[in-house]
Structure formats: C-alpha cells, structure tokens
Amino acid sequence: MRFNRKGVTKIKFLPTIASAALLPTRAEITAGTDLTDGINAIDGWNIENQPIETPDMASTFVSKIDGDDSAADSSLTFYEDNTLDEIETDLAKGTSGYMCIFSKGDVPAGKGLDVFPVKVASNSKSYSTDNEAAKITVQFVITDRPALNQTVPAAT
C-alpha cells in the first residue's frame, strides 16, 4: 500500500549501539533522541555506486560493472528553537553516533529500519531576511557501511 513518509517516518539519533550488526535494542532506541518533529528538510541518506567502465575491442558499446559503494552527502535541516539549544549541543560538530531512520514508522517487528553510523561534520545556523522560520543545517559524514532495511526491535 502506498503511503506518505510525512507523519509515518521517524528519525532518531542514538549515541550508542552495542551490536556489531548495527541492530539497536529497544533500550538503545528509547535512550536516543527523537528528531522527527523538528526536521524541515532531509538530504542524502542513501548509498551510491561508482560504476566502472569496461570497454573492449569486440564492441563499440561500453559496458559497466558495479564498483565501490559510498554514502551520499547527508544532512538534516532543523527548525531553530529560540529558547532551547538541543540541536546545537546534542548534534555539535564532532559528535558521533547512529542515525536511525524508521522509514515505515517505529513499529515493532516492522521492516524499514536503516541505521547509519555518523559523525557530525558541521552544525550551522542559516541566516536570512526572508519571511521564514529560523533553521539550522547539520551535515553528517557516514563513517561505515550502514545497515539497511532491518527489522525494528520488539518492545520490551
């Protein structure tokens, strides 16, 4: 069934995940920070392949094989709060952890949990004279291969 990600997808930042397979426990998810409500824009958060051209003398067609994988440049843009500074402190430059994207919601035993090991590369306020809400953009580097389409852990 088709659905709209807005209102369904949840995004949480977890400071730690013990599992080498990057499958968080329910306790680790609960200890994380739910960022969903403050997000204005999302960019990246996928894997890209760098295909390798393999021309040969037998054909004028240049075939390709799959090459190295890399993570797309990834960021989250948040609405800035005029009294709290959670985004500035919880996601300060240099902070490491795990971005968990529950693409189909945080539904125990559901599919669609993507876990990205990350480090905050920058945390920058946006300044504008336009008639718009104040925003902060946090750029992340993905530090290792993410675990994609995992099963959401059951509630304990």
Rank of each mutant, 00 (worst) to 15 (best):
Y127P: 07
C100K: 03
I29V: 06
V138M: 03
G97H: 05
E48Y: 15
A92T: 08
L22N: 03
L76W: 00
V120S: 02
G32H: 01
L22Q: 00
A154E: 13
G32L: 03
A155W: 06
A133Y: 06
E80K: 09
T30G: 14
N131V: 11
K111G: 11
I142W: 01
I65T: 06
N49C: 14
A109C: 10
S126Y: 07
I136D: 01
P24A: 11
V118Q: 00
T9K: 03
D37T: 15
K125Q: 09
S128K: 05
Y79A: 10
K111T: 15
V8Q: 02
N40F: 08
D85I: 11
E53S: 14
D34Q: 01
P117Q: 04
P55C: 05
I29S: 03
S74T: 09
R26I: 14
L35G: 06
D130E: 07
K10L: 05
I11A: 13
D68S: 15
T33E: 02
K93M: 08
L84F: 15
P51Y: 03
N49K: 13
P15N: 08
T54K: 06
G105K: 04
I136M: 05
A133F: 02
I52R: 00
S75T: 11
A41F: 05
T16M: 04
T95C: 04
T36K: 02
R26M: 13
P24D: 07
I17R: 00
P153G: 04
P117E: 05
N46A: 12
G44W: 02
A20L: 10
L76D: 01
D34T: 05
D130I: 12
K135Y: 10
G32R: 01
N40T: 10
G44R: 02
K93Q: 12
